[in-house]
């Protein structure tokens, strides 16, 4: 049977992708960001899964205002990097895993989560920047990826509680897949940031670090936090952090009470407008 081996959490700031693509990683400003991922790149080489289930949000790229799915699962064989207005990022095409994706969709929908099934979409920086941070600049990504897009563009995003419970349902789905695959679940976006209005540039270190502490030790309690607290304390775009709860809900301590191992933790301000947070949790 397939199993979830670890979860990875990271911000997905577009400027990080631009810094990589334009060869600016050695600049002191960016060095401080990328230094937090040196461990992670080595870790991923040692712990390459068979599939990454990558939770992210589409930034008005694949989904315009014509359709706004709350949860969308990518079931295609491949996903091209999107042109977000600057031209597509020069990164590899993302290979999907249609069999596992379809299996998860069927299982999770029957578990009462209404996913939208997407058979064609381009993927934006929300998905490709985490891959770049964790893999560097390879010719091909190290394994297939199932993109899982969450609406955080038009209010309301799904609640933290619903995201956390969805993670649990995803775990059940993966564990009922009849092939010995190692799967990682990645939760991306955040941490505190606000990109709009006179309050743009908001950063809240205390909130972010408390969020990391609780994500590790008290995720069920953290999942009860209402939307308004994210928006008020972590900025209008800080609401992206609900996506981290999907990955956290998929970890095994929610089932067997064995706390995950914190393999890596990193926090840095700023990357462009954003506080960068990063965690790797391994199932014991």
């Amino acid at each position: 049977m397939a199993r979830i081996t670890a979860s990875v959490y990271t911000s997905h700031v577009p400027a990080i992708g631009a810094a990589l693509d334009q060869g600016k990683t050695g600049e002191p400003y960016w060095q401080k960001v990328f230094s937090g991922y040196e461990f992670s790149k080595a870790w991923l080489r040692e712990n390459t899964p068979d599939v990454i289930f990558l939770v992210y949000n589409d930034h008005a790229t694949a989904f315009s205002l014509e359709m706004i799915p709350t949860f969308a699962i990518g079931c295609a064989t491949e996903f091209k990097p999107a042109d977000e207005g600057w031209g597509p990022r020069p990164v590899p095409v993302v290979q999907g895993h249609p069999e596992l994706a379809a299996h998860i969709a069927q299982s999770v929908i029957q578990d009462d989560f209404d996913l939208t099934i997407v058979n064609r979409m381009d993927v934006d920086h929300g998905l490709t920047v985490p891959l770049s941070l964790m893999c560097g600049q390879p010719q091909a990504w190290p394994c297939p990826v199932i993109p899982f897009a969450v609406n955080v563009v038009q209010y309301p995003a799904p609640s933290g509680r619903r995201c956390f419970n969805l993670g649990r349902a995803i775990r059940k789905a993966v564990e009922s897949y009849d092939a010995p695959l190692k799967v990682q679940v990645w939760g991306t976006g955040g941490m505190s940031h606000q990109l709009q209005g006179p309050r743009a540039g908001l950063i809240n270190r205390a909130f972010d670090n408390a969020f990391l502490d609780r994500l590790i030790a008290d995720p069920a309690g953290l999942s009860q936090m209402p939307h308004i607290d994210y928006v008020r304390e972590a900025g209008s775009e800080g609401i992206e952090l609900v996506m981290w709860l999907i990955a956290r809900g998929a970890m095994s301590d929610e089932f067997d009470n064995k706390a995950p191992k914190v393999a890596h933790r990193f926090y840095h301000v700023p990357a462009s407008n954003t506080a960068v947070g990063h965690l790797i949790l391994e199932n014991q």
Binding site: G201, I203, S272, N273
Partner: peptide
């Protein structure tokens, strides 16, 4: 860049906004 866009909404100059972010943000 996104930083230029965000900064343009705050009444700060590009340099002031960038410096605020390096100093830990708003």
């Amino acid at each position: 860049s996104f930083q230029q866009m965000a900064g343009s909404m705050t009444g700060m100059s590009e340099e002031e906004y960038r410096d605020m972010m390096i100093a830990g943000g708003r």
